[in-house]
Design a protein around this nucleic acid. Structure first.
Lengths: 228, 228
DNA sequence: ATATCCGAAATCGTATACGATGAATGTGCG
DNA sequence: CGCACATTCATCGTATACGATTTCGGATAT
C-alpha cells in the first residue's frame, strides 16, 4: 500500500509522506518525530528522513531542538491569528489578481461549488464544507496573474496545518455567512467591480472567519480587521 | 577566520554560511553547489551540507536536480516580477499594520534615515542607498502588529537575493522619486490617515520601483499595478 | 570534420557505524 | 520519604563507505 513514487528520491518521498501525515492530523502539533521510527516505517535510513524534516522545518511545519529531536510545530493562538491574517492578505490579493482572467465558465463552476456548500448546510458536515470551501477558492485563484502568491498561500495553509479550519466552520452562523460572502465576491467579479473592491471583499471574507472564531472563543476580542 | 559558532549544529552553520554567500552574491544564481567542495571548505562531511541545502531549497533559494546536484536558483524576469509584486503586497500590509504603533520618535528616526538617503543622491552610491532603504523600511515594520508578515517579507527578500536591488536604484530618477514617496508615507502615518491609504501608498511605493525598472529595461511594458 | 559510442572520473543518494548528548531509571544518603 | 547522583538507554549528529547516475573526454566510424 506504500504509494511511494520511485521516480522521486527517498528524501522527497519522506517529505511528502510527513507532510501528508501532518496535514491529515495523524501527526498533530507537538507530535514527536523520531528519526529511527519514521525511517523504519518508510523502509529507508535516517539520512533522507532528516533531510525531509529539515525541509519541513524551513517551512515552519516542524521544530527542531538540538540533540532532542524534531516535533510538529505548535501554533499557539497568537501565531494562528497572525498566519490567518497573512493569509487573508495573500488570498485577497490573489483573488483580485485572478479576477480579470476568470471566464463566465469559471464563475459558473465556482457558483456550483458554492451551491453544494449551501446544500450541506442542512446536515452540516464541517469536513465536507471545508473541502468545498478550499475548492471554491482554488477556482478563484487558479488563473491568478501571480503564481508566486499561490505558492505563498499554499505554504501558509500548510503552516496552519488546516488544523482548526473544521472547528472554525462550527462557529454558529459563520457557514451561512461564508457562502453569502462567496456569492458577493462572485458578483463583484462578474460585474467588473474595481480590483480594489474585490481584493477588499476577499480579504474581509477570510478575516471574518478568523474574527468570528475569535469573538466566539474569546468573547470581546477581535482581530481588528485591516480596513484596506 | 572561520566564524562558525560551535553552539550551533554543523548543518545550521552550513545553512547560514551558504545563505550568506548567496546573499552577498559570492554565489550567484546558477552557481553550482558541489557537496564535497562545500563540505571540505567548511571542514565537515557532506551530510550536514546536504541538509542545509535542502533547507535552502525549501526556501526557494536553491534548486535540486536529481543525481545532478544543487545550484543557486535562477530567478528569471517573470519570477522576479511576481516576487516583487508579492513583496509589495506584504510590505504594504506590514506598513499599515505597524502604522498605529509608531511613535513620533520612530517617525523621526525614519525621517532621519530618509534624510541620509537624500544626501547620497548627489554622489550616488547605489549600495549605500539600498542599505539605507532597507533600514528605512525596517523602522516602519519594526512595530508591526503581525510578526508573521515580517517573516514572509524577509523570506521573500532572501528569495530575490537582493540581487538586482542595486541595479534597480540606477533607473534614472527613481531614487529621487523613492525618497519623495518615503516622505509621503511618513506624513500619511503622522496625520493619521486611514490604514487603507497607508497600505496603498506603501504598496505602490514598492510596485513603482519594479515598474520603473520594467518600463526602463523593457520599454512599453508595465506591471499593471494592483490598484488596491 | 562531425557524430556516435564507450570508459573513466566526478558527483550524487543512501546505508551503516559510532561518538555525543539528553532523558529515564535506579540507587544511596539525608 | 525525598533529593542528589550515577548509570543505562534512547536518540541524535555526523563521518565514512559504496553503489548508482551523470558528465566528460577520447577513440572510432562515417
Amino acid at each position: 500500500m506504500t504509494d511511494t513514487r520511485t521516480d522521486l528520491s527517498k528524501s522527497q518521498n519522506a517529505y511528502l509522506w510527513l507532510k501528508e501525515r501532518i496535514a491529515s492530523q495523524e501527526f498533530t502539533p507537538g507530535y514527536r518525530l523520531v528519526l529511527g521510527s519514521i525511517a523504519g516505517e518508510l523502509d529507508m535510513s535516517v539520512v533522507p528522513v532528516r533531510e525531509a524534516i529539515r525541509q519541513l522545518e524551513a517551512e515552519g511545519l516542524v521544530t527542531f531542538e538540538r540533540n532532542v529531536g524534531a516535533r510538529v510545530s505548535m501554533v499557539d493562538d497568537t501565531q494562528y491569528r497572525h498566519s490567518m491574517q497573512a493569509l487573508s492578505i495573500l488570498e485577497g490579493a490573489a483573488t483580485a489578481l485572478a479576477a480579470r482572467q476568470l471566464t463566465t465558465d469559471d464563475i459558473a463552476i465556482a457558483r456550483a461549488i458554492n451551491g453544494h456548500m449551501i446544500e450541506t448546510l442542512d446536515h452540516f458536515d464541517p469536513r465536507a464544507f471545508t473541502t468545498l470551501n478550499r475548492e471554491f477558492h482554488a477556482v478563484l485563484f487558479a488563473k491568478t496573474a501571480n503564481p508566486r502568491l499561490l505558492e505563498l498561500v499554499e505554504s501558509e495553509w500548510g503552516r496552519l496545518g488546516n488544523l482548526r479550519d473544521s472547528t472554525f466552520s462550527f462557529v454558529p452562523g459563520r457557514a451561512q455567512e461564508s457562502v453569502r460572502e462567496h456569492e458577493g465576491i462572485l458578483s463583484l467579479i462578474e460585474t467588473g467591480a474595481s480590483l480594489g473592491d474585490i481584493e477588499a471583499a476577499a480579504r474581509r471574507h477570510r478575516s471574518a472567519t478568523l474574527d468570528a472564531y475569535l469573538t466566539h472563543e474569546h468573547p470581546g476580542e477581535s482581530l481588528g480587521l485591516l480596513t484596506l
